[in-house]
């Protein structure tokens, strides 16, 4: 069960990651990065990148891999 206090960007990115679980990890990371880049507001992206940098252990490894492919983003939208 999802804990309601999980920050939304972590919850959402993990929900994406799990969809790609059975794919080739490199390909999946690329797809996820493209998806996040296409659909996420920069401030969410910024928070995600910040958490990746901070090594938040709640993040799915696929997301960490994808984050490496994402451009930086502004934090206030």
């Amino acid at each position: 069960m999802t804990a309601t206090h999980t920050p939304p960007h972590i919850r959402m990115s993990n929900e994406i990651a799990v969809q790609f679980r059975n794919r080739d990890p490199a390909w999946a990371a690329e797809q996820i990065a493209a998806h996040i880049h296409s659909f996420w507001d920069p401030r969410m992206r910024a928070r995600l990148l910040a958490d990746v940098t901070a090594d938040d252990d709640r993040l799915d490894p696929l997301i960490v891999a994808a984050a490496a492919l994402l451009p930086p983003a502004r934090a206030n939208g």
């Binding site: 939304p8 960007h9 296409s38 659909f39 996420w40 507001d41 920069p42 401030r43 969410m44 983003a73 939208g77």
Partner: peptide, 13 residues
């Protein structure tokens, strides 16, 4: 050129 907030993201933000 960057996407904006979706409704649920608006609430989170």
């Amino acid at each position: 050129p960057e996407p904006g907030l979706r409704i649920p993201n608006m609430f989170d933000a």
